[in-house]
Design a protein around this nucleic acid. Structure first.
Lengths: 342, 342
DNA sequence: TTGTAGGCGTTATCAA
DNA sequence: TTGATAACGCCTACAA
């Protein structure tokens, strides 16, 4: 354990006051070049690093971003969350922030965690993932004037506009970052059309999930634009391998079966692959797709994470300056990874 | 934003001094029951929560555990690290600790991160993952007397016993938690033997990786114990789907081909599945195995994470008391998830 | 441009 | 058993 090096140590070494050292650190411009240089040398020689706890105590900023880590869920969530966390940690690190994890059960459990973490002044902002219809979390955060952004759009108006209250002045909406799922499935559909298919089906999740409906929309819109019929070509089911297989079998058994399928997840696509010979495109470009040669729509997760961090850092900077940051919405376009399957 | 509630607020409300409130929080035994009760009521009424930055400043403890999050690597790493992080965050939370992430490139990059994080007093201990032969990280941490534990055994003596130095007194080894990979492949092998197979092959990674050699050992040991020949039945290759397929084809083309394969990863197993009709057992029980009905050896990741946290909390408690914590080694046994593949 | 004084919220020390 | 005082390391305001 090296001896403790504080601002005072550096000050003594550089023959200046503690305040001058602090200035070199925080507002270098107001320090004479020669002094600044001397102080920086002392800092380097002594290997000085600011004590973050002390800084936080004084400034009230912890430079910590919190994100909930979910239970492992098969397929999609696993791989995507993993990449997201990595991207988040990397982007945050570059901005002088760090990422802390917390776990919670359900929306209300997550809100309880917000209370705890905020109560102990343990973090500056939250990244909220897996937004859904009627999301109570975003409403809570808005009402409590907490800095946050979401990976995922608000899927209903009530998520965007909580009941106005003195503590939640306009604008009521919140910043978010998301991937344009419809653009992804549109891309997949177009790819299959270009490959010569005309009876292209869609395998997705039950109506009602924002993400699922979005992905459905990209397919149906593109089919319509190409003048292709969609009647009887789509099947909605819960996410899963067996479910994908069953749904695909069902589609293939119809009078005019599809020759290709756009799927809302790799898992569904892999299930469908077992249902018979059919061109496939999955979604999320998971390890499974990579491993099994499945074409898949890949979300630019690193960019999403970086955008989240940028938004939050900007938001925190604005708050520090006492002004309201603009609400920002970032929608990134995924890209299609073509493999032998489609 | 609720008004700030500090220990002083609570003290006033309960008609005691700040110190008494602090005592109720940290050493409740020394406070008279009646006073303690009154203070606790005030805490509840006011929704008081300790300011962690202030506490850290005073105690020098941040209650933060740091873990590096790697780049996403296909297959294995993704799913396992994901589960591990969740388990870590959950177990840490239960002990009043939180988990912070950091990224780094290579061992030396990780060591540089240690320097930074420790220098700013930003965390109490590290969890080190993916230990390997000649791991410089553990040696560095030992030499600098940093609290840490590893998920993964030290795979060479030099990892365990750094050059003795005044700052690293005995015991030189470090605590670790790991999964008994050999037990896992032994289990898989026995399962295949019980299913009637006698020519059971092994598909693994090149010699030299601790984890890979460990998994190989379980297979070869079990085959020997059962009096079964292993000559010409194993194939080592880099991890990957195509690699697994090629290696399996190679094995199947031999004069006396195996009828079943124990694989060091799900990815290899899924590749092997495409090589022909052969019973398979994978490793890690990833989403891929779950989705495709592949039998697989599942590591008790949650238990590993919990053990890591327990070791670290214990270590930190000892340090706080000024005594050396015993070095602990935890080796957990995986279990076999049987599906239709094997 | 540089230095001095004070306080952030907590806990450790010691006195009452 | 409880309370007063000081100190952790930093930053902000203000004075020199």
């Amino acid at each position: 354990m090296a001896a403790k090096v504080t601002i005072a140590t550096v000050a003594r070494r550089a023959n200046v006051s503690r305040q001058t050292v602090s200035n070199v650190l925080n507002t270098p411009d107001i320090v004479r070049a020669e002094t600044r240089h001397r102080v920086r040398e002392a800092i380097a020689e002594l290997g000085y690093r600011a004590n973050l706890a002390a800084r936080q105590m004084r400034t009230g900023r912890s430079n910590l971003l919190a994100v909930r880590i979910d239970h492992f869920r098969d397929g999609r969530e696993g791989a995507v969350l993993d990449r997201f966390l990595h991207g988040l940690a990397e982007a945050a690190g570059a901005e002088g922030y760090r990422v802390v994890l917390f776990t919670a059960e359900g929306d209300d459990g997550e809100i309880e965690s917000y209370r705890e973490l905020l109560g102990s002044y343990a973090l500056d902002a939250f990244v909220v993932t897996h937004t859904h219809h009627g999301d109570r979390r975003t409403a809570w955060l808005l009402q409590h004037d907490v800095a946050f952004t979401t990976f995922g759009r608000p899927w209903s108006d009530t998520d965007m506009y909580p009941p106005p209250s003195p503590s939640a002045p306009p604008p009521f909406g919140h910043s978010w970052v998301d991937v344009d799922g419809a653009a992804g499935t549109a891309m997949a559909t177009r790819h299959l059309i270009d490959a010569g298919h005309s009876r292209i089906g869609f395998l997705g999740w039950p109506t009602g999930s924002g993400v699922g409906d979005d992905r459905f929309a990209g397919w149906s819109r593109t089919m319509a634009e190409a003048g292709l019929a969609v009647a009887g070509l789509d099947r909605r089911t819960t996410n899963g391998f067996a479910e994908g297989r069953a749904a695909a079998r069902d589609l293939l058994a119809r009078r005019h079966p599809p020759t290709a399928l756009v799927c809302a997840s790799d898992l569904l696509a892999l299930g469908a692959r077992e249902a018979g010979d059919i061109a496939l495109v999955g979604f999320d470009d998971t390890a499974m797709a990579h491993a099994t040669g499945l074409s898949s729509v890949r979300q630019p997760i690193d960019e999403v994470a970086a955008a989240c961090v940028r938004i939050l850092v900007d938001e925190l900077d604005h708050r520090r300056a006492g002004v309201t940051a603009p609400v920002r919405h970032v929608l990134r376009t995924p890209h299609l990874v073509v493999r032998d399957s489609g």
